[in-house]
């Protein structure tokens, strides 16, 4: 079995992260978990087992940069497969084996895709739909949920998909790189747990507009 690491960026998630780690233990050993504490007010390592790898940013740099730190550390530790999850417990660890199974079928990247069920806020459904279609038109990448942070990839393609974005758009930038490099990819539908309807830690309309500009910029840049 390939050496699998889970990378979890987290910011001020001292309440939800320990629960997530506890659930993850069923599927993956603690020593294969990398948590990136992105400058949380209270150190997250105080709430986690000493066996979990915790890389702490001294200042908050954003999800994209935290993901890079986590992936770099995992690669240094010899990871052959990296699974990315959000630290707020939105992603169900129970889906992890399905991601690994799909990678074992020869895919280089497996994207998580949230089911468009009633639990998903309406504005997110519309925003995601519009974004997915824009990515499909600009990059020929037909994904159902390009913004889902739950995904897995083989580390031998890490350098090809490395991202510059420091915020939530890093998920999209990564997907765009997969499309441009024509990497073998698939999707896996996942259930999502929404903790609050008016979460301020997630993406906003402003993020969406900024991302649209980024998409156009990436398209022009990669011609």
């Amino acid at each position: 079995m390939k050496k699998i690491f889970v990378v979890i960026p987290a910011y001020n998630e001292e309440k939800r992260l320990p629960e997530l780690i506890k659930k993850l233990r069923t599927y993956i050993p603690l020593s294969r978990m990398v948590v990136v504490d992105d400058g949380s007010k209270i150190k997250l390592e105080n709430f986690l087992s000493k066996r979990v790898w915790v890389a702490r940013h001294r200042v908050n740099l954003g999800k994209g940069i935290a993901l890079r730190t986590g992936c770099d550390l995992a690669v240094k530790l010899g990871a052959e497969t990296i699974i990315l999850m959000d630290g707020d417990g939105q992603h169900d660890p129970g889906e992890l084996p399905a991601f690994i199974k799909k990678l074992n079928h020869g895919y280089q990247v497996v994207f998580g895709a949230r089911r468009l069920d009633k639990k998903m806020p309406v504005w997110r459904k519309w925003g995601n739909g519009f974004l997915n279609r824009t990515v499909a038109v600009l990059f020929g990448l037909n994904l159902c949920d390009v913004w889902c942070g739950y995904r897995a990839f083989r580390t031998n393609i890490y350098k090809k998909i490395i991202w510059d974005s420091s915020d939530y758009s890093s998920d999209v930038e990564m997907a765009v790189a997969v499309g441009l490099n024509k990497l073998k990819h698939t999707e896996h539908f996942v259930g999502t747990i929404y903790h609050d309807k008016e979460s301020t830690t997630g993406t906003t309309l402003h993020d969406g507009l900024k991302l649209l500009i980024d998409l156009l910029f990436w398209r022009v840049q990669k011609i």
Binding site: H57, T69, D72, L73, K76
Partner: peptide, 18 residues
Amino acid sequence: KLQDLVRQDAIKRAMEKK
């Protein structure tokens, strides 16, 4: 530069702690 510095520092400290 700040991002690189903070990231490298985080990785270095994580490995040293272990």
